Simulated scan of single mutants.
Amino acid sequence: MSVRSVNGTEIAGINMKLSDVKFDVADLATLRALQMFVFARDLTETTSLKQQGSKRTNLRDFQKATAEWGHEVEAPQWLDAVTEADGSQVPAAISAALSGSPARDAERYGLLRLELVASTSLPRGTKWAVNAESLHGEALRLLDPTESNGDVEGLAKRFRQSLRRISTDALSPALRLGLVGGSVALTVVSSGVATAVGTAIGGAMGLSGAAATSAGLAFLGGGSLAAGGFGMAGGALVVTVVSKAGYMGSRYVATSLAIKSPEAMIHELAKLEVLCELRPELTSEVLGHLEALRDELGATDAHGKDGMANRAKAVRAVDSVTRRLTDTATHRRWRMVTRLAPAPGFDDWVDGR
């Protein structure tokens, strides 16, 4: 069962809770297969020899990392055929592997759809040979033949708008004054950030070295192979209280991520914001978590100038999402003023209107 869009809003019959926003191993295997499909199809359309080399290396590395992950978590056997396929044979292997996959309900499909669109990025220095959303649509039709490129493009546009707005709001007023056009340029988040955070989590479990990294990435829901995502659509992991087998008892992932790279956190918050727009029933629960997350960030030690700046940036990002989810249409129009001409205290003034 797929999610359908009505007047720009995706509709499904079952109310979702934030605890439902997670991927199991089968979901992650499917997501990675779809990403490999996108990378492989883009490679076949690439004419530049230099770009071909970079993209071919990216695809092979992605296949290798996915194979290693699959063996660690006992992923479905069909994934082996996908990771072992060679170059141009990858799309056919994935199509065959997914042809017999069981149908997903609206929630599962919607999460895969959002994660694919928001977290599938090419390596730095390369660009899409064709429209990325058309490739995403082609991949998603392996699961739902009725999926349209138009709906995928609409979802991608919504995510980019959220990401750009949160990134702008997260800057200090002084930096925002220097922006041309009132909006920051989007950059690709390094997947290495997730690896660093995963290692830190593994260390909190009493592990070290590769074992710490592996365990930490498993805790995150599969790690950073989604080119910036953590295997959980909507950034739910960032805002929920994480405690697994007693390893930690607070928002360790979110606060660690904020200090190491607020840009990575912003990426996850943008997914979360889009998810709330698509599924309004999540909003109240998310707002409660965002308030607690803001308090946690305020109480987190941030060493050095960079650490303190990153924490402040993360707090502003959380505030941006909170306001977006609670603002009226009038409030949102006022916010446009402060993005174009930042003024100290203006957002607080709007909050009181």
Rank of each mutant, 00 (worst) to 15 (best):
R176Y: 11
A236V: 02
L237A: 12
T187G: 14
S121N: 15
A215F: 03
G228A: 04
S208T: 08
G178R: 14
A185V: 06
L143D: 02
A200C: 02
S134G: 02
E133L: 01
V130F: 06
L163D: 09
Q161S: 12
K127Q: 09
A118V: 00
S167N: 12
V239R: 11
V188A: 12
N149L: 01
V117I: 14
G203Q: 15
R160V: 02
G231V: 07
S119H: 14
A212K: 00
R176W: 13
G209E: 08
S162T: 01
G229L: 10
E153G: 11
A218G: 10
S224R: 10
Q161G: 09
D144T: 14
A233S: 13
A212L: 08
V117L: 15
N131V: 07
V239G: 04
F159I: 08
V242K: 13
A129Y: 10
A211N: 15
V238W: 00
G231R: 09
V189Y: 05
S119V: 00
A156P: 10
V239Y: 09
A196R: 10
A215R: 15
A210V: 09
S167R: 12
R164W: 03
L155F: 06
T146N: 11
L142A: 08
G228D: 07
G209K: 03
T126Q: 09
T120N: 01
V242L: 07
R160W: 12
S148D: 07
G182H: 10
G178C: 09
G181S: 06
T187M: 06
L207Q: 08
L142D: 01
A118Q: 03
A218F: 14
A227I: 02
L140Y: 03
V189Q: 10
G228W: 01
V239D: 03
D151K: 01
K127I: 03
S183G: 12
L155E: 01
G203A: 05
L163S: 11
F159D: 06
G203P: 00
G125H: 11
S224N: 13
S134N: 14
A211R: 08
A212C: 10
A129T: 13
E138P: 02
T120L: 09
T199K: 11
V238F: 12
R141P: 06
P123Q: 13
L143H: 02
A211W: 00
S167H: 07
S190T: 05
A233R: 06
T187F: 03
A226W: 08
E133S: 13
G203E: 13
G221F: 05
F230A: 04
G202K: 04
K127F: 11
A245W: 13
F230L: 12
S183A: 15
A118C: 11
A236D: 13
K157S: 11
G154V: 02
